[in-house]
Design a protein around this nucleic acid. Structure first.
Lengths: 203, 203
DNA sequence: ATCGGAAGTAAGTAATTACTTACATATGAA
DNA sequence: TTCATATGTAAGTAATTACTTACTTCCGAT
């Protein structure tokens, strides 16, 4: 692996665990096994390094796209199970020992100060919500789903995954129970609601 | 207002917007309209100041308890509407121009480095989820809710509010639509699910 | 009027940090 | 070999930051 790539990986990792302000170029260089001066020769400044990590991972995140390519022949519930488990998997493992979702949360913090960061993050979130919305819209047209606002459904769906992965990242996996079981329970609620059928009034 | 309290308020505000590492004692003192040395005389160190802010706001947050005191005579959906809107209100306004939820997110970051912070945060989250769980358990016993895992229901419920308030905090209120309308749509999904009634298989 | 405590002013210290400069070494292509 | 390029070592700079010390001012209670 090239020095450049090692620095980018190290930066992702250190930014994720220390935050942008908390991460020092020394620590990043150390983690990448390069001299600190090499980092500056290749990336000029810490700010620019963040930008490069962002660009590289914007594409990496976009492979989430694949997760949204759901076969239409399966039923909605099965689709969501597969999708949910894939999202959880992508957020967790990958390289950088699952630091990627922690990197994302660091972006939330940093986004409030750097408009460029906010913009990239926002476009990424919008993209995913929109893609999911379109899927729901299709399901509604196919008569497989109630006629509800598809964006609200998408927002509800991703809320769960973002929040649980935040909790797991901060407090460890023991904080919540087994991931797969939890997801199944969530999808049960998401698809069927918490009410008893006979109590549902307006549908 | 005493100098001590002004410093605590200022600290909450600056910690929330700059993060713990990013916040400087100078900025906090400035925001509180006191000399920097006064801050140190009263709180000894920045770390200790964070601890004090935390302690004070742990109690303030706990007034969320009131939001969970739901009258049993109303029906579940009405309860949730009221609860949801109250949560949204508490997260937003209050004093410190709605910085309080941003302070909470800063705690998530800081919690990964400081076990004491993680513990306070974790106990706060657990407390709220437990309280909500108990409410759901009661509703299940009263036959008003399907027999689902109450903790999962609680987790699903709070996920939505935490995530949307994070999005509003970072990207502004325009990122999502009107808060009340959004909440209504969420509760519709949460209570009734997205599926059509006739498609629900196992209940 | 005076005395004590809370607050301010001013200056400084030691550490850290992003970033630079100057020079040396290694390596692979010509 | 030679030479360009990539990388390392070492030292330093200017700014920032948490925190301290010494002295002064303000103010309410006695």
């Amino acid at each position: 692996m090239t020095a450049e790539q090692r620095i980018l990986d190290a930066a992702l990792k250190v930014f994720a665990s220390e935050g942008y302000t908390g991460a020092t170029t020394r620590r990043i260089a150390e983690e990448a096994n390069v001299a600190e001066v090499t980092l500056f020769r290749k990336f000029q400044s810490k700010e620019n390094l963040l930008r490069e990590v962002l660009l590289q991972n914007r594409d990496a995140f976009s492979t989430l796209e694949n997760l949204f390519q759901i076969k239409e022949d399966l039923d909605l519930e099965t689709d969501l199970h597969i999708l949910g488990k894939n999202i959880a998997k992508v957020m967790k493992d990958k390289k950088n020992d699952g630091k990627r979702h922690m990197f994302m949360f660091m972006l939330f913090e940093e986004g409030r100060r750097r408009p460029e960061v906010a913009e990239i993050l926002s476009s990424f979130i919008q993209m995913n919500i929109t893609r999911l919305s379109e899927y729901f819209e299709l399901q509604i047209k196919n008569g497989k789903m109630r006629n509800i606002n598809p964006r609200s459904a998408a927002l509800t769906f991703v809320s769960y995954f973002v929040y649980t992965s935040l909790l797991r990242g901060v407090f460890g996996d023991s904080f919540l129970g087994d991931s797969d079981e939890e997801i199944e329970r969530f999808i049960d609620i998401f698809t069927k609601g918490i009410l008893k059928v006979e109590d549902m009034k307006t549908r």
